[in-house]
Structures are given as C-alpha cells and as structure tokens.
Nucleic acid binder design. Structure first.
Length: 214
DNA sequence: AACTCGGGGCA
DNA sequence: TGCCCAGAGTT
C-alpha cells in the first residue's frame, strides 16, 4: 500500500464522514468504559437507551461496585450477552475501587487487566476519554481495512499495527470512527453498497466483483 | 486459531 | 426462522 493511495482514501473519508465521532453518550471515563463494554455485539443506539436510564444513578465505580450482578442484569437486559456483561461491569467497578481509587486507569496494560476489557475497549477509552493516541480495531475496521487494501493481515492486532503506521497519530481516532461509519452504512459485511461507494476504485472487493461480471 | 457466551436486528 | 453482529475470555 503506497502512501499516495492512503492519502487519497483519507481525503475521501474526510469528505464522506466529516463529523465522525464517538456516538456512545458519556460524561466521564467510567461511563464511557461501561458503555463500551455494553456495546459488544450491540448497536450504539441501543447502548445509549440503556445508559440514559443507567447513568443518572450509577455514574461512578463506587456506586456501581455496590450492585450485585443480579441487580444489574435487568437494567442492561436489552443489549445481549447480559450475563457476561453484568458480571464484568460489576467486577470491573469493584477492581477500580480496590486498585485504582475508583478512577479509570490511563494505561493500556491496566485497562486490559479489567474484566471484560480487551484491546478494542481499552483503545476506545484511551482515545476518547484520555486523548491518548490509539486505533481501536473491531470487525468493521477489520473488514473495511482488508477490502481497501490498508492491511493484508487477518488478526486485529496486526491490522491495528498497519493502520497506525499508515495514518498520522493525531488522525487515528478520527479514521477509526470514519471507517466504522463506512462499514456500517456502505461497506457492510453482507450486501455492501458498492454502486454508491466513493471508495470503490480503491476496493479489492469491488474490483474483484466487477472483474467477474464484465 | 477456534470456540463459547446465547440477545437483538434484519431479511 | 436463520444468520450475523460497534468483543472478550478460555482452550
């Protein structure tokens, strides 16, 4: 992948998604952490509906740590995998109180040591709550990056390394959100809307499919 | 690298 | 109904 192509793709992403930002509603790092844990295999819209009635009362680790798993489950029941998520959120809140004075740590290592927090969630919190350069890679970013030829790697970690090298550090989180929007709206896993996609001339999937048809 | 977890959205 | 999804943990 040459530098000129990356710049052209970057310009097109800026034109297509000029206001791409984190859509998870949050007022502080703890709220973002909880919202991000809830967002696994669930839409942001649904997560925001849940946190809108969750955070007025449970907006800190201290308050969340006092709940039991069974008390939290009915409050987050609408977002899937709620057994795991409830257990992880309670355990994480208690770990924050026990080891970090009730605040959210700002290093990747400490974040990933929290139950239910993996590399993607840690990167989301680092970038959106602490302005620490990070490039969260989820299934959308993975798929779009592969189709656009931004990375030929298959694991999230290696794709993340490629993306971090291709884009300037101060653009990482913006590119993340732009690619997320693109993956959700046009470059969908199934039935991608290649016919109206401004990026299709850079896309291996489109070039491959149009080659077969013609 | 593959499997588990096992709800919601959409065709 | 059937299939995939803005993941993480375990094997």
């Amino acid at each position: 992948m040459n530098a000129k192509t990356v710049i052209q793709i970057s310009i097109l992403l800026d034109e297509m998604y000029p206001h791409a930002v984190c859509e998870l509603n949050h007022q502080n790092p703890f709220e973002l952490l909880v919202a991000t844990i809830l967002s696994a295999q669930c839409t942001d819209k649904r997560v925001n509906e849940i946190t809108a009635r969750l955070f007025p009362r449970l907006n800190s680790a201290e308050k969340m740590a006092q709940l039991t798993e069974d008390e939290l489950i009915p409050l987050i029941r609408d977002c899937g995998l709620f057994n795991n998520k409830s257990k992880n959120i309670i355990a994480t809140a208690r770990q924050l109180v026990a080891l970090h004075g009730g605040s959210v740590p700002q290093t990747r290592e400490e974040l990933e040591s929290l139950p239910g927090v993996g590399r993607k969630t840690a990167n989301v919190v680092l970038a959106n709550a602490f302005s620490t350069p990070a490039f969260p890679v989820d299934t959308h970013v993975l798929r779009v990056s592969q189709r656009l030829g931004l990375s030929s790697e298959k694991t999230p970690e290696k794709v993340e390394a490629d993306l971090c090298q291709l884009f300037p550090q101060d653009q990482w989180i913006k590119k993340h959100h732009q690619i997320i929007f693109h993956g959700r709206n046009l470059c969908k896993a199934k039935k991608p809307l290649c016919n109206i996609c401004p990026l299709r001339n850079y896309c291996s999937l489109f070039l491959q499919e149009s080659g077969i048809k013609s």
